[in-house]
Design a protein around this nucleic acid. Structure first.
Lengths: 119, 119
DNA sequence: ACAAGTACTTACCCCAAAGTATGTATCATG
DNA sequence: CATGATACATACTTTGGGGTAAGTACTTGT
């Protein structure tokens, strides 16, 4: 986890935006390089850690768990682990995460209404 | 404008995500610190450059025009300038920008469904 | 003549998010 | 006995988005 300077303008600005703009608030939860795709893949159902890794080949393990953990803390995803060997861990959207579906769906609709094409 | 290294994993990953994930594609257009709030303010109608500055006190002029320009290039906002002195420049959502309204509205709904409160 | 308002532009710096690399624990299987 | 699979952890480096500060050009008000 990266240590963050408490008294930087960057941070002050972010906090301000999160506090005063609902859109920024949402962005702070689902923004960044990787959260969008992780969420996108979780939209289609529960996934194992390794499944996500294979679905998102370019992601490093560090980034994957870092964001999964973050989204857990933000109550967007739920981690479930059977205490067996080899470990079996699954991730799925929580209720709050599920409620993001309209947001993400609206994005998908917009993307395809623009020049977006898969490959 | 910051010069960007062409052969970095960072960039390659971003391009990949944009190309393969519709949600990432949208994020690349409306993500970042400032675009969300600028868009949020433009949702309520055409604004002058200085109006936006006053509505978003923490933003620097550099960031404001930088993102306005970017969103112009992405065909999200339209710049209109009367060639008078003192200059009179307005910004408003384009058609494509307007079509983002469902996305942004869904975000606002979600934000208020969570613990988000203004101040 | 000088400050104030308009809408930018440009050079330089900083830091947090992202990437690189390597290590950990447990058990099954060859 | 060592390799592979599982799901992580952690130290170190890079980089690009954002911040700071100052300048531009043109006109109106005092």
């Amino acid at each position: 986890m990266t240590t963050i300077k408490e008294n930087s303008t960057l941070n002050a600005n972010r906090k301000n935006n999160r506090a005063s703009c609902p859109v920024s608030f949402v962005m702070s939860k689902i923004g960044g390089h990787w959260k969008p795709i992780i969420l996108y893949h979780l939209l289609s159902g529960t996934k194992r850690y390794n499944e996500l890794k294979k679905l998102i080949p370019a992601i490093t393990e560090k980034m994957l768990i870092q964001h999964l953990k973050q989204m857990q803390q933000d109550n967007l995803v739920i981690r479930e682990a059977q205490n067996v060997v080899p470990p079996f861990v699954t991730y799925r959207l929580s209720n709050e995460g599920e409620q993001l579906r309209p947001v993400l769906d609206a994005m998908v609709v917009w993307a395809f209404a623009q020049d977006f094409k898969i490959d």
